[in-house]
Design a protein around this nucleic acid. Structure first.
Lengths: 270, 270
DNA sequence: GGCGAAATTGGTAACGTTTCCAAAATTCTT
DNA sequence: AAGAATTTTGGAAACGTTACCAATTTCGCC
């Protein structure tokens, strides 16, 4: 691979001048710049990313952690992050959850892996991290952004959707359609997202005078299979309901699939 | 950030010795190694990835290009690549297709982007590249692996599923179930995958004595929406068929969705 | 205890950039 | 035309690591 030295020699200029042309920083006369550019083309020169990182300290890589690459939740997020990063000349280095251990352990493993690589910044989509974890990564905490989670110590580096409001909106939609007998398929009971959505949903139903304690709620796992099984369980339980709230799309799809197989029309009977 | 020099000084050893302990290459006495390790802990030392890359030339990053992050085809591939890479201490740097321009242009843009970063190797999932493109990247061609495509000049760096055989297997499955009137929803007519699958499928039907020219084939686009529309078009066309072959899962899902909405039982009528 | 062999150690020279500073060349001003 | 001001240029030093070589220490053996 040709280096900047080769370029400088071929162009008959000094090292500094070649560097200025390549990086575009600092003035160079038009004539000289042209000569350097010709040398670059001739040698098919490409700057070494690693060598550039060393004196400047900027790696132009952003590490992104996603709990898992599956389903309809994280994938579009990853897609958008990638597009935005690339438009700004940044690289995306990714780490997904390993699937072993609890969510917090996986997230920290992923983050550590990314930190090893010396990224300029870190983008974590996970609500499992705690204040202790932030302390543990020390100075790197200042280059960390959290999505879908909020921690006091870095609260202005945290960005979330308002899941509580989401739950309320879902409830309002069903209430507007005059539904009063409503069933719920919830996600993991330990998931903050889930708890917030369900709470918001119930709160709104309560305001409408519905007895929320009588609402059948099945705790599931955010997966299509979980939605399928939960829908089956709801039907088997003989509870009567005209509408169903699922805490995420995946379970909604699973439930729809069960209803179709069971010959229950949606929309129609539910 | 602490450097290897800080570690060496604190441990009271030479630079070379510290390097040997950290990289694990070369013999160091147990006593000394322990001293160095304590210094590492105390300083929370982390080797700089970029500095390491410079003398060795190995960046420990593998660039992966995927045409798009959507649907059920590429995502699991990406997932598996990630798992395997990480288990070997490698990083995955990803580039997705931009969505602008033809597939070949996008793939080359993605590859160029990755090459800029100086990865150790490149993994491209794309059947759009040509021999000219391989020539264009010069020496980097030796560190390129192609998935789902094959080019003569680097044929031992190419790995593909046998789409023709896949089409044949699909046909055999339907024939075994005694289907004789079969419809087809194909993918992009320009897609090699699609052409191979359809050809394999038709070949097998031909062997079974079915008039393949009479088979209704609708060219679509591999998307659920395309499958939906094509299924609708097939039904509207009044062709009679008891089985349907879709060139990929996405279109299959779209077709199923249409049939459900149209009240056509699957399995049952189709 | 002394010798040779082997193991361990320290430090210099890369790796390919950027950043600076001083020197040289050019332009402007009078 | 001379001097001052400005622009352009070249090259040394630094970034943090690894690889190598030479020097030192340790060990085994008679």
């Amino acid at each position: 691979m040709a280096t900047i030295n080769d370029v400088a020699r071929l162009a008959g200029v000094g090292l500094g001048t070649a560097s200025r042309v390549i990086s575009g920083k600092g003035a160079v006369s038009a004539k000289t710049a042209e000569r350097v550019r010709r040398a670059i083309d001739e040698l098919k020169y490409r700057p070494s990313h690693a060598a550039r990182t060393l004196p400047t300290g900027a790696s132009h890589m952003i590490g992104v952690y996603i709990p898992l690459l599956k389903g309809s939740f994280y994938t579009p997020i990853l897609n958008i992050i990638h597009t935005e990063l690339r438009a700004n000349g940044q690289n995306m280095v990714v780490a997904f959850g390993s699937g072993n251990g609890d969510a917090r352990k996986q997230a920290m493993e992923g983050l550590e892996f990314l930190i090893e690589r010396g990224c300029d910044g870190y983008l974590l989509v996970s609500d499992a991290l705690t204040e202790d974890d932030i302390t543990a990564i020390g100075a790197q905490a200042s280059r960390l952004v959290l999505l879908n989670h909020s921690l006091k110590s870095i609260h202005n580096q945290c960005f979330s959707a308002d899941h509580y409001a989401g739950g309320r909106l879902a409830a309002q939609a069903l209430l507007e359609m005059k539904h009063r007998r409503i069933a719920v398929i919830a996600g993991f009971a330990t998931s903050r997202d889930n708890v917030a959505r369900i709470n918001g949903f119930m709160h709104e139903l309560g305001l409408a005078g519905i007895d929320v304690d009588a609402i059948p709620v099945i705790d599931s796992d955010f997966s299509p299979e979980g939605g399928w099984n939960s829908a089956a369980a709801l039907i088997a339980s003989k509870h009567k309901f005209t509408a169903l709230f699922c805490a995420n799309d995946e379970m909604g799809v699973g439930a729809l699939s069960y209803f179709q197989q069971a010959g229950i029309a949606v929309p129609g009977r539910i």
